[in-house]
């Protein structure tokens, strides 16, 4: 991602982007960070595409297996699990990428108030972590996630927003 600097210093950054772009961004950031050292990835959407990551690593001509060992992954399938994962501090200040944070908070089996309470707990731990290590949240919000996203925007030190690209009218060939 030439557009955004790879997070190296302790901050809480938020990247909001359309689905395809955020997936590509996630892969690029992970590959970039895994090149130099360990990186933590918390996946809330069950969609970390490891095979694309492998291709990206190979494209960058990196030591594939060494880089794969650098990437530490844990997945959360409920908002309770996401909150518990975020409570764990990053060892030695290594960078943390959080993918699809909001997906687990859309689970209608948990009451809305409960989910909002858990989001506050999550944000508290994200901020705490960001004092010692770089933290990047990558989300592609659904309309229903807006109230949750608003709270995250308020909390983040820096917010990057990418709008979907509307293609210019193309003239047909024939």
């Amino acid at each position: 991602m030439e557009l955004i600097p790879v997070p190296h210093s302790p901050t809480l950054q938020l990247l909001v982007a359309p689905s395809s772009f955020q997936r590509k961004a996630a892969i690029t950031f992970i590959a970039e960070l895994a090149q130099t050292g360990p990186v933590r990835v918390l996946d809330g959407g069950n969609r970390l595409d490891i095979l694309s990551l492998n291709r990206e690593l190979r494209r960058k001509d990196l030591l594939l297996y060494t880089a794969l060992e650098h990437v530490q992954v844990a997945r959360a399938f409920t908002c309770y699990q996401m909150t518990t994962l975020l409570e764990q501090p990053a060892p030695g200040g290594i960078p943390t990428l959080v993918l699809n944070l909001l997906t687990t908070f859309q689970d209608e089996n948990a009451p809305l108030l409960e989910r909002l309470r858990l989001l506050e707990t999550s944000l508290y731990h994200l901020q705490k972590n960001a004092r010692h290590s770089p933290v990047l949240l990558i989300v592609h919000p659904q309309p229903t996630e807006e109230p949750f996203l608003a709270r995250i925007r308020e909390t983040a030190d820096r917010v990057w927003v990418f709008e979907p690209h509307h293609p210019a009218i193309q003239f047909s060939l024939f």
Binding site: A74, Q81, L85
Partner: peptide, 14 residues
């Protein structure tokens, strides 16, 4: 339930 996945390397996940 409170148990969460332990961190594992991308290679282990594969």
């Amino acid at each position: 339930k409170q148990q969460v996945e332990r961190f594992k390397t991308a290679y282990s996940l594969l």
